[in-house]
Amino acid sequence: MPGIHLFKVAAPSVAKKARPGQFVVVRIDETGERIPLTIADWDEKEGSVTIVFMEVGTTTARLALLGEGDSMANFVGPLGLPTHIERFGTVVCVAGGVGVAPIAPIARELKEAGNKIISILGARSQNLLFWEDKLRSVSDQLIVTTDDGSYGRKGLVTEPLKELLASGEKIAQVVAIGPSIMMKFCAETTQPFGVKTMVSLNSIMVDGTGMCGCCRISVGGLTKFACVDGPDFDGHQVDWDLLIARQRIYLDEEKRSFEQWRGQSGSCA
């Protein structure tokens, strides 16, 4: 799949403690950055943790070069608070792009807790869709959308979401995970219906344990640290514009670093 990668990482102690909604912080090697990645799955018996990531910059591009049997310098977790799981009733799980990876274990555990799960899986195009079957297997109903109509229904995830909310079926909660802009529009869609909407925020982090405050966001007018107070928050309370602006802090540096890296790795090849 273009630019999207799935790694199964041998990390027995993390696998033993992982819960849906939690994340890990990884660093490739001595010169690498520490970046947070959501836990997509884990297998305690096998001692493995699955991560899924999209190539967006130097770190993820370097990570993508690793293959079977390779190792990374650091893999720290499980971090953050687990997603709150209980029997709510009907829960709509909305996954955008790679958001399907973290949402799959959440949907699974919500299903096991006795909820009816309606999932909406969206991507820009068919070739960016994955884990459709995995999500279907834990959902009572699955709706797939693509922006370009190459597969499933043409359009954005917010369209079927709005129809479900308007259909009269009692929806207890919505869980939306994906790019910030998609989560923002999901929250805006559900707000008029008064349906609680949980989102998982992916701010920039360094340590991931509450030490630096880099990931701070505003929720309900209060400053929170996504790493220790989240990453799950009530989407109706999140200051989305601030989150999105803070995700862009290092845009220039990231671009410079990526161009330099591409130049170097190009000349080596």
């Binding site: 010169t31 690498g32 950055e33 360094v206 030490m211 405050g213 540096e253 670093s257």
Partner: peptide, 30 residues
Amino acid sequence: ENLNGIYSANEFLTRVNLMKAYQFSEYDTP
């Protein structure tokens, strides 16, 4: 206080010392 460019000393020093942002380009942390 949440504007871009405002750091806690912890974050600023961690980036510079621990992650070696003062050698950015050789190290990946900005």
